[in-house]
Design a protein around this nucleic acid. Structure first.
Lengths: 88, 88
DNA sequence: GCCCAATGTAATATATATTTGACACTAAGT
DNA sequence: ACTTAGTGTCAAATATATATTACATTGGGC
């Protein structure tokens, strides 16, 4: 499919613990997929649909770029705000 | 698959014109897919794989969130830097 | 008016993501 | 020692994304 299939990494597992301490099943339910799908993604067996990626980002209340990222990332600006945001 | 399948919109077409004025075929080549895949995405017939989404973002040199976004977007912070970036 | 490039569409085929169900392993609680 | 929740894994089935080929349409340049 894609030129040279980017290898995309993610910190779903990390976020799952750090952020809200939830089980795979809980996360699966939250984003509406099966637990095995979560496993597959955490283990990086395949990358999810854009849809699911968004759902996960949503679940963690993070921009998608903070959940999924390219390994040798050079071009995509990481979403690190340079200033403290006011509201959030 | 997903809870209530988010409907994700994109401005691939817009960017394709505005940004670098390229044809569907050219873009397709650039990101390594067939032209019909580009058509399908522009027409929003299905949302791409995360991989392709990244490739497109890459092609346009934009963060993924500026290429794909949710319609009734409330939770995902849009990537609008609050300050002028230095380098780029 | 003719040509050609760019675009839209449709059918069929293949690849990949996701589901379902089942089972093994481990750590923690009792 | 027994149970149970959380996790990893596998195989087979289904859904969805993508490729391929082929054809129709439209707009611009000649």
């Amino acid at each position: 499919m894609a030129k040279t299939k980017l290898d995309i990494d993610n910190n779903v597992r990390k976020l799952r613990f750090e952020q809200q301490e939830m089980t795979q099943q809980a996360l699966a339910d939250k984003v509406g997929v099966s637990r095995q799908t979560i496993v597959a993604i955490e283990k990086n067996r395949y990358s999810p649909s854009l849809d699911l990626a968004f759902q996960l980002a949503l679940a963690f209340q993070k921009p998608i770029t903070q959940v999924f990222f390219m390994k040798a990332d050079k071009l995509t600006p990481p979403h690190k705000p340079r200033v403290k945001l006011k509201g959030l």
